[in-house]
Computed example of a mutant assay.
Amino acid sequence: MTSSPVTVSITRHVLPELADEMVRWIRAGEALAEQVPGFLGAGWVRPGLDSDRWQLLYRFADEESLAGWENSERRRSWLWDAEVLGLVESASTRGTGLEGWFDGTPSAPPRWKQASVIWLAFFPLSLIAAYVFAAVAPHLSIPLRVLLTTFVMIPLMTWVVLPQLTRRLGWWLNKG
C-alpha cells in the first residue's frame, strides 16, 4: 500500500499588531521544515489585513515524513517561540481526502454526491463480502455474518476506498 501526501491545516488567532512577528515566525518555521525529508511546501492566508485569523498549511510526502517534523526538536523550539511571542491560540486538522464532507463547510459536496460516492464504495464491497462469506462460512448466522462484514468493510472504506474515490472523483465532487 502506497502512502499519500498529508496536508496539515493550522488556524492561529493573532492580534493584528503582532502581524509582523507572525510573518517572521511563519517564515522561520518554513525554513526549518524545509530541512526535513519529505517536506513538500507550506503557505498561509488571512481573510483580511484587520483579521486576527491566520490559516497555515504545510504538506509532507507521507505520514512518516510528517511524524519526523512533528517529533523534531526544531519544531518544538519553533512552537516555543510562538508561545513567547503570544501566537499560541490554535487548532489543527489533517487532510485525507474526506475532510469537509460532514462538517457543513462550503467546500463540502452536496449530500447526494456524498451518498453516491459512498454507495459506489459500499455496493461492490458488500457484494464481494457476501460471496466470500457464503463460500467460506455458509454456516454463520446472518447477524454474525453482518458483524464480521462491517468489521472488515468500515475500516477498508474509511482508509482505503473512500479516500481514493474522493481523489479520483474530485473533479465531479467539487464541481459547482
Rank of each mutant, 00 (worst) to 15 (best):
M22C: 13
P143D: 02
I154G: 01
Y58T: 03
W54Y: 15
G68L: 03
Y131D: 08
R46W: 00
V88M: 05
F133C: 01
R46T: 14
A91E: 15
Q55E: 13
R111Y: 05
G43I: 03
E64T: 10
R94L: 14
A130M: 03
L148G: 10
V88Q: 11
S126D: 01
L125V: 11
V136W: 14
P155N: 12
W78T: 07
L79E: 12
W44S: 11
A108M: 11
S72M: 09
E99I: 06
F151A: 14
G86F: 07
F123H: 01
W80M: 08
G38T: 01
A121C: 02
G95P: 01
G100L: 12
S51H: 06
D52S: 15
W69H: 02
A31F: 01
L32Y: 09
W25H: 15
E99Y: 07
Q35R: 15
W101Q: 13
K113I: 03
L127P: 01
L87K: 11
A82M: 04
G86E: 06
E89T: 09
V117F: 03
F39I: 05
D81F: 00
V36C: 10
A82L: 02
L87S: 11
A28K: 13
E30W: 07
L144I: 11
G29Q: 07
V23F: 03
I142R: 07
A134Y: 00
F102E: 09
D52Y: 06
L85F: 03
W69S: 08
H139K: 00
I128K: 08
E70C: 07
L40W: 00
T105G: 14
D50V: 08
V132E: 06
W101H: 08
D103H: 09
P155V: 12
V84I: 13
L148I: 12
F133N: 01
Y131N: 10
L144A: 10
